[in-house]
Nucleic acid binder design. Sequence first.
DNA 1: GATGAAAAAGAGGCCTG
DNA 2: CAGGCCTCTTTTTCATC
Lengths: 151, 151
Amino acid sequence: MTNTPAASLLDDVDRALIVAIQTDGRATLAKLAETIQLSVSATRTRLRSLEEHGVIGDYRARVEPEALGYTLRAIVRMKVHGSLYDKVTAILASQPQIVRCLRVTGESCYVMEIVATGMSDLEQITSELSRVGSITTDLVYEMVVDRPIPL
Amino acid sequence: MTNTPAASLLDDVDRALIVAIQTDGRATLAKLAETIQLSVSATRTRLRSLEEHGVIGDYRARVEPEALGYTLRAIVRMKVHGSLYDKVTAILASQPQIVRCLRVTGESCYVMEIVATGMSDLEQITSELSRVGSITTDLVYEMVVDRPIPL
DNA sequence: GATGAAAAAGAGGCCTG
DNA sequence: CAGGCCTCTTTTTCATC
């Protein structure tokens, strides 16, 4: 991964491209070129550059978790002693159903998002976590908003 | 949006396709077809069907928020009286920097994720929220994990 | 599975700072 | 002169039958 001071090197055209590809990750170069008012090849050059510099990480389809059998989603906050961070890392590696994990300031050290096929499935994962730190689990009723980063 | 009992109608091939496209959202049909061991046209048919049934919602590039000038990310938990949900909806509509919002069980009613250009930017958004309910704000040090939903 | 259409990748030259 | 862009050509991928 080529490191770059990111933001500073980007001009308005780059930013427009980022917003476009964020909104439609499967847009063709021709479409992207049209929305940012550039030739197809210039668009391709910029897109590759953004990818190579890690500004654009990867591309994903957003999927209804129910389709894969996950009927439950939970937010787990976790308070851990710093000496146990390694154990957390190990759990994260072994539990792909922990789809998101942020290290944060404040009362909790970590905030995680977990998908599960049912309560017993969830309980199995959370019990593993609670061996390392103290946790609070909230079930998700509804994903109200989930949108790209704005310009 | 065409509604479907989702999960029940999917076979293993569909699930494999979902995982593939989730991991590489820009993969060509040929690539997808190869990974799921199917002809290109059959792959296309299945993909369209998944899209039309809303199993696959949309495609996005994942972007380094810093590239768009957002140096800060925060998790905000919010406790609101049910009669004020409309006000929350209004704020969500007017604040695109709230990139994620989940309605949850437990002490908080909502958990949100906010991107901001700096502390004063963040403060402006959170102060708006705190007019509607009581909030707790945690800053994000690090995104430890952010991965697709597993099979 | 074959065919015409579309998109992506590559090559070379032009314009501007 | 370098960097970025454009146009033209070839190869790959897509869609329809």
